[in-house]
Design a protein around this nucleic acid. Structure first.
Length: 110
DNA sequence: TACTTGACAAAAG
DNA sequence: CCTTTTGCCAAGT
């Protein structure tokens, strides 16, 4: 893959996340072959503002299902969007995260 | 070209 | 179980 646009790669995967599902930064990073760049995934999310089509960054959480970036998204918006997709969020954490978890390396890998 | 930063992750104390 | 430390990589300055 051409990682000239590392961010773009991340955005593409994030857009592929099924509605009502969530994934982790590390999972995306691992799918891209750069497990160590899990931080970059989140960093990329920070730059997702204003891009087209919109990136469902609200479906991306940390490894424990914690909405680590809800404050960056717009405090409250993230939970609202997740709730709209049927995802239960309690104390900034996705409930039943383990079942809702969508691993691109497994679901998307061919 | 070098140093700093970051919406993370896993291990150790 | 909670806090602290280390690793990791890319982008910005």
């Amino acid at each position: 893959m051409d990682r000239a646009n590392f961010y773009d790669e991340v955005y593409q995967v994030v857009r592929l996340i099924p509605k009502g599902r969530v994934t982790s930064y590390g999972a995306i990073a691992e799918y891209q072959g750069t497990k160590g760049s899990s931080r970059m995934v989140g960093y990329a999310m920070g730059a997702c503002g204003g891009i087209q089509p919109p990136v469902p960054a609200h479906r991306v959480v940390n490894r424990v299902g914690l909405l680590s970036g809800k404050f960056h998204f717009g405090g409250g918006t993230m939970e609202q969007l997740l709730a709209s997709e049927g995802i239960k969020v309690k104390d900034n954490q996705v409930q039943n995260f383990r079942e809702l978890f969508w691993n691109p390396s497994t679901e998307l890998a061919l």
